[in-house]
Design a protein around this nucleic acid. Structure first.
Lengths: 364, 364
DNA sequence: CTGTTAGCGCCTTCAA
DNA sequence: TTGAAGGCGCTAACAG
């Protein structure tokens, strides 16, 4: 508890009024606190006259139950926790937003934690949240399976999003990354591409593992695949391009859209044209993928569905229902302007200018 | 409390263990619960030998204090609430993320609520959150001043972000929208633009009021300004373009970047070239503004600073410190590719094709 | 420095 | 259908 009570600033002029408790309501209504409690929780076994009286007293006094007390007494609350690797990634927002809406519909609130792409922090935040929420959603967790297993042992309901962990016994909601990525590679192969570089995501990311597996699998289609480590954000994509180009690929396959954006910016700085000189693909189809230029060929990972389903599963667990193991969610490949057939004259030497003029976007 | 306890699914195989309480730790360590409490809260007045014994007992048993009980007993907690109009707007990401990081550094957690651009829900969510958090941040609230005033009366610390409300007595952290928008208009005027349409944001948004005020003020520069209502999201921008074009402007000034993105997409569908046929500006400089094509002229609203400052102010209030009224944060205008001098041949009739080929991004 | 003891506000048997 | 009373787990005086 980092806090002290009883603060006062020149902004808080009005005399702070204490919390209205159930006792005051009971007195005002001339009933016992038990009755008030019953009325507040909508118990049917209260004479309607009393219900009326209590209701009136309650909102005249502006009574609102104290959640901490409710939770302490009843053992349950109305909030769920969510841990994400990085709050700055739009991909997660859609998942979170969908989840939040679904949860709010049933009266639940959301405690959010940002792990900053750090697996250890992820675990710490999770254990911490565990104590105060009724359910926990881990979105794309990077923490090791052993950590997940420890969490699974705890007395809280947990669901995993976009992380399939075998032998952990946690229900999972995930996208079929593999198939979609195979399709993307197939698309490139059909266009006539041969040399492809995969701009890899975070090593510990299940999604990265799946996508990379697919890309490598694509060698069966005659693609020659090499991998360059990048990450999950715009700047890692930007930074990885130079190494990737040394391998003289005709196409760059990015871990996700953000990496692709970064790569695109760098390519433009270098004067390498997309898709004329090199094709580029993303993954996730975040809302901006359609608005960059050239618009990005990517795979539409249905975030909203994921979010809704995650809540649905969690809710099932919390209400003691049997949990359906949900199948992988399909991701649709979206062909846009950033991919095309390779030209015969793949540039063997690159332009030496470090950056084009004012048109070149700067990366922060 | 929407919840029931005691759920069981085929996933939760291990026998759920009860919460370890302070009593068990006390017994295991052979001390009183008061001592355990002291040790856990780092009180200096405990013999180091006992500290040691308690610590060992605590983590052997895996003891973690129950936050609900702590909060009930002490009256304070360690979580702050945040209400945003729309979680899907990237503008808010950075504000939230910065705030979250700052708060986490001091041991605070974040309860998030999405008001879905609905002022009433905003108020409800706020009053609800009020009961269970130690501080509340309202980001760009659209609710009426009267509602804010009621909230201000409550026994919680509140800070406003990007909403200046006079006579409400709530500390505020905000961007200087007005000056930046005046600058944007000046930029257009210097380029030689005369007829400008403002794609307005949400009516109840203070930021919109400020930006619109600035645009209208720009008539002093010789700009002829007309306003078309749009909103705060991509699709509202997309939808507003047709009406805007009827006014035959040489430049479109958008409420924010998202609206500009939507407008850009629609303009491209119509075959109207940016900036050749019409210039376009945004506001906020979200990370993607540099990556669309043409890259967007906009104003860099320093979200991170806002987030940090919001936390700083809130923290000051919560710790009873005097609150500095912070001055408006300056927004820098960023000139990019979407603005240029108007050509003499402003298209009087538009191309009739409803949409260009595969290059036209689709809006969802 | 340490232990005892009231509560914090509410829920929930258990009787009536 | 209602009320009385015992906790929920912890903090914070207050004694010693």
């Amino acid at each position: 508890m980092p806090n002290k009570k009883n603060a006062r600033t020149r902004h808080t002029s009005v005399s702070q009024r204490r919390q209205v408790t159930i006792i005051e309501v009971a007195e005002a209504a001339g009933v016992s606190i038990a009755t008030v409690s019953r009325v507040m929780s909508g118990s049917p076994s209260v004479r309607s006259e009393l219900v009326e009286r209590v209701r009136r007293a309650a909102d005249e006094l502006g009574y609102r139950p104290n959640p901490a007390a409710q939770r302490l007494a009843s053992g349950v609350g109305d909030t769920i926790g969510v841990v994400v690797p990085n709050l700055a990634n739009p991909y997660f927002y859609d998942v979170i937003k969908a989840m939040n809406i679904a949860a709010a519909t049933e009266g639940y609130q959301m405690l959010i934690a940002d792990a900053n792409e750090d697996p250890d922090e992820e675990f710490d935040l999770s254990t911490n949240l565990l104590r105060q929420v009724d359910g926990l959603v881990l979105v794309s967790p990077r923490m090791p399976a052993a950590s997940l297993r420890r969490l699974a042992q705890e007395n809280v309901h947990i669901v995993l999003v976009n992380r399939v962990a075998v032998g952990v016994g946690l229900p999972t909601v995930a996208v079929d990354n593999y198939s979609a990525m195979v399709e993307i590679c197939g698309h490139l192969a059909r266009l006539g591409h041969r040399r492809v570089v995969y701009l890899a995501g975070p090593e510990l990311s299940w999604q990265n593992v799946e996508r990379q597996r697919a890309v490598e699998q694509a060698e069966a289609f005659g693609l020659e695949v090499q991998t360059v480590p990048a990450g999950a954000s715009i700047d890692t994509g930007h930074a990885a391009v130079d190494r990737a180009l040394e391998l003289k690929p005709t196409a760059l396959v990015s871990f996700n859209d953000l990496v692709a954006f970064g790569a695109l910016a760098r390519l433009q700085e270098l004067g390498v044209r997309v898709p004329d000189d090199v094709s580029l693909t993303g993954f996730d189809d975040i809302p901006f993928a359609a608005y960059v230029s050239p618009s990005l060929t990517t795979a539409n990972s249905p975030q909203r569905v994921l979010g809704q389903r995650a809540w649905q599963v969690l809710h099932q667990m919390m209400s003691g229902a049997e949990v359906d193991d949900t199948p992988l969610v399909k991701a649709e490949v979206v062909i846009r302007g950033s991919t095309a057939a390779p030209t015969s004259s793949t540039p063997d030497r690159l332009p030496s200018r470090p950056a084009a003029g004012s048109a070149a976007p700067s990366v922060h």
